[in-house]
């Protein structure tokens, strides 16, 4: 890895799976969220990752910033229990979730603990 340049975001900081590996090697507990299905207009394609540690630090994205907060909130649970969860996000009014996708699409996110 190259030395960080002030004011510059390195490639590794932008790559959630590389971040997850680094956090894991640092002994931090990590949850990995993955977009597994999308319907209609969705900001991030299937396969996109958001990784979260036990303190709520996160890297990556599963939407355009619309539902990350909710996924991060669920991550603590998943890290504690080790049980994976399937999360569905759609237009706010149509789901039990308080947050939704303003773009009108729907996404399914698989949230699991690393290890």
């Amino acid at each position: 890895m190259t030395a960080p340049v002030p004011g510059q975001i390195s490639e590794d900081q932008l790559d959630p799976l590389m971040v997850a590996e680094r956090w894991m090697l640092d002994g931090r507990e990590v949850a990995v969220a993955t977009v597994i299905e999308t319907w209609g207009s969705a900001p991030r394609p299937a396969g996109s990752h958001l990784v979260i540690d036990a303190n709520g630090n996160f890297s990556g994205s599963v939407s355009g910033g619309c539902v990350e907060g909710a996924v991060i909130a669920e991550a603590a649970d998943v890290i504690a229990s080790g049980e994976a969860k399937m999360l569905d996000f759609g237009v706010a009014d149509e789901t039990a979730w308080q947050v939704g996708l303003s773009c009108g699409g729907r996404i399914q996110v698989y949230l699991e603990r690393l290890g």
């Binding site: 799976l17 590389m18 603990r113 690393l114 290890g115």
Partner: peptide
């Protein structure tokens, strides 16, 4: 996610 496989995946990507 299996940590061992994550490391293997990242190594393959590199």
């Amino acid at each position: 996610m299996d940590p061992h496989l994550l490391r293997q995946l990242n190594a393959a990507r590199r």
